[in-house]
Design a binder for these strands. Structure first.
Lengths: 234, 234
DNA sequence: GTCTATATAACGATAGAC
DNA sequence: GTCTATCGTTATATAGAC
């Protein structure tokens, strides 16, 4: 087995990403909307709320989740919930925006090598490891993006495509430096993104087959690289 | 450009798949649930209903779609709608089951060559062309499968995985005959499925880049085949 | 076969006691 | 800071006129 450019262990030790850390940032960024004064209590309960939202959305969709469902799942009354947000829609946007910020930040932190071949491997690993840590957040974003209000719909495209553009840039750099031989960096980046998404959208499949995230990273890198260096590629 | 094992033109001329034909089958299979006696009228209005369901679900999800929305979009009153189904959940299941049957049938019809290399190309093309004809139905299935009642959840897995298993079988056959050299036919089939799903889940992307379904078919075949014949493959 | 009108339940959201 | 009680609205579903 080849060495991975980034191991899950290394990634996990450098990034303490969790729902907790996202919720702390979320509380700080929305101090005006959240009426609870004690920060620790606000974060603590927001964690329960976010966990419940993601879990219930997975079962019936965000629109299908009622605030009574949410109240029951969090053991907070309806009245209490409304101290943490002003409307159901606002709750969605708080979660969405905070997750988006966190994810994009982390992806850019880990792929830094100046050799595009290595940078590509780092980016693939970082994306997979992050979605391994927060699989339900990733699939929540993918499945519920349509619930964003029209004014925020632009951001969806930005989020959905921004990581793809990041891969495109790496591929372009590799082509320019004569390392990669490919015809369409756009199709290639899109295909790569599809393979990365599969990891969190079909989680049950991989876990039932006992495939680890590092094994899958290795597979994806191999699968893509075969096409980057094959001269017959169209 | 290599010749495709199956062109879109050939596929389209053999298959007259459309929402209309699916709705006709749907009406016939649910004669007990639909109270409209004249078949033609039933089919005609069911087409409007199904189109509206898929369109509204795309915007706000099936759960987020109210029957008032549906009434407005179809120009049928609430009362009239209930002559076509007995509950919102039943409507969902009628559409889901009928689409599932149709799709699986068609996929199996087109990949028949005894050479696994060619059969694989045929299956890839058939899957892409069918999802090109009915893109919104495919993404409806993917996004809304969670709305199935628990007793039908088993079927989801069957539907989601049955086409993947079909690809697995082709790959296994190719390995046995010494044509393909791959380590894990399961990972390979999964990756292939992810690439095929990308076509209907990210439709806006491909259409804005003016990539035709045949171009994408060519790309996917190339992308996968490079890995089937590369001896370095893990 | 389709309509209008309505029954009944659940929804998001708020007010005020504690 | 959280609760209970309840507001006004909207949901699914049905009944009966045409």
């Amino acid at each position: 087995m080849n060495e991975l450019a980034l191991t899950y262990r290394d990634f996990a030790s450098r990034e303490a990403t969790s729902i907790e850390s996202i919720c702390r940032a979320l509380v700080l960024h929305n101090r005006d909307k959240i009426q609870i004064k004690k920060e620790d209590r606000a974060v603590q309960n927001m964690v329960r709320i976010v966990r419940a939202v993601i879990s219930l959305s997975q079962k019936k969709g965000f629109q299908g989740m009622s605030l009574r469902d949410l109240s029951q799942e969090t053991d907070l009354s309806m009245g209490a919930l409304y101290n943490y947000f002003n409307s159901k829609e606002e709750l969605f946007e708080m979660i969405y925006n905070e997750g988006k910020t966190t994810i994009l930040q982390i992806l850019e932190t880990h792929a830094t090598d100046e050799n595009p071949a290595i940078r590509l491997q780092q980016a693939i690993c970082a994306h997979l490891y992050l979605s391994e840590t927060l699989p339900r957040i990733f699939s929540f974003f993918f499945m519920e993006a349509k619930n964003l209000s029209p004014k925020n719909q632009k951001n969806v495209i930005t989020m959905e495509q921004s990581s793809e553009r990041y891969f495109e840039k790496i591929l372009l750099d590799g082509i320019k430096k004569g390392i990669f031989q490919i015809e369409s960096h756009q199709l290639m980046a899109g295909a790569l993104k599809a393979l990365l998404q599969d990891w969190y959208l079909k989680r049950y499949k991989f876990s039932s087959r006992k495939i680890s995230v590092e094994q899958y990273a290795q597979f994806v890198i191999q699968f893509v690289e075969t096409n980057l260096y094959a001269p017959g590629n169209r």
